[in-house]
Design a protein around this nucleic acid. Sequence first.
DNA 1: CTGCGTGCAAATCATTTGCAGATAA
DNA 2: TTATCTGCAAATGATTTGCACGCAG
Lengths: 157, 157
Amino acid sequence: MVREDENSMKKDQRKKELQQGHRIEAAQTALKETGLKATEPRLAILIALSENHGPFTADEVHKLINKRVCDQATVYRTLTRLVEVGLLRRCEFGDGIARFETAESGHHHHHVVCNQCKRVEVIDDEEIEEIDRFARKRGFSDVSHILEFFGTCPQCR
Amino acid sequence: MVREDENSMKKDQRKKELQQGHRIEAAQTALKETGLKATEPRLAILIALSENHGPFTADEVHKLINKRVCDQATVYRTLTRLVEVGLLRRCEFGDGIARFETAESGHHHHHVVCNQCKRVEVIDDEEIEEIDRFARKRGFSDVSHILEFFGTCPQCR
DNA sequence: CTGCGTGCAAATCATTTGCAGATAA
DNA sequence: TTATCTGCAAATGATTTGCACGCAG
């Protein structure tokens, strides 16, 4: 029981800390709009990803939020759900590990990954989205694409 | 022993069939150029991929060549080697499963995958390769990219 | 209250690896 | 011969799932 009380206290504490931020309402609103329940893991993940740059693996997300917030199975389930409802976006860097980032403002962008230091930089250029026309030319509709760049960054050269 | 003889007979049979094709010499030559030994699994995989369209998963490649030709561990090792030496190319469709196709003629291309029927079409346009400039603009060198399109094909619409 | 969410542990899936025997050059 | 290769089986690593309980609405 002492243990029980300690736990629930810590949990309340965490929730309170969460609520100090401003992003909490945004996250709650966003979840409400999708019809998903606003649970602690979901809020924590949404907030963590809105405060941190670059796409993260499921494991990185789990560390980013406090690991005690939830199980890693929940991290996977949550990431999948949030991608489904469009709050997150999934990126593929070709190494077989899925990475996630916020889909905020709904605008698509890409990354350059340094082959040496693995640093990730955002590439955000309206012009790039035009490439979808290459697929439309073939008669495809509802076209989307995955695009990531790799190279050697200026510092590593 | 009877079993032994049967096996080696079948193996010779397979080799012979292989040699009837014209692609065999090309495959042998290609392997020789890279310094890799011209083994049966490697020849079979090179030939299978040169005769069949579209990128295939390791498992599909294994079925494509006769499964008895080699173990699936060898399929993986072979695919990896052949990509390393540039005879094959690896594609990522964002589902966490690697796919392979021949790198013949050495020119880079992309795919459109139909979200409904999963049919894959090749998109080969010089112009597309220019997108690397978006990464170069950021000071990156040795730039490469992964790019795949998804959509609904004319037949499925 | 009730169904959606979650923890936990076990199950899957793709891919990799260690090692001893087989084979191309 | 001898450095590569391969088969087999076990190990990994990422992700998923079954099930009973927990909690948001």
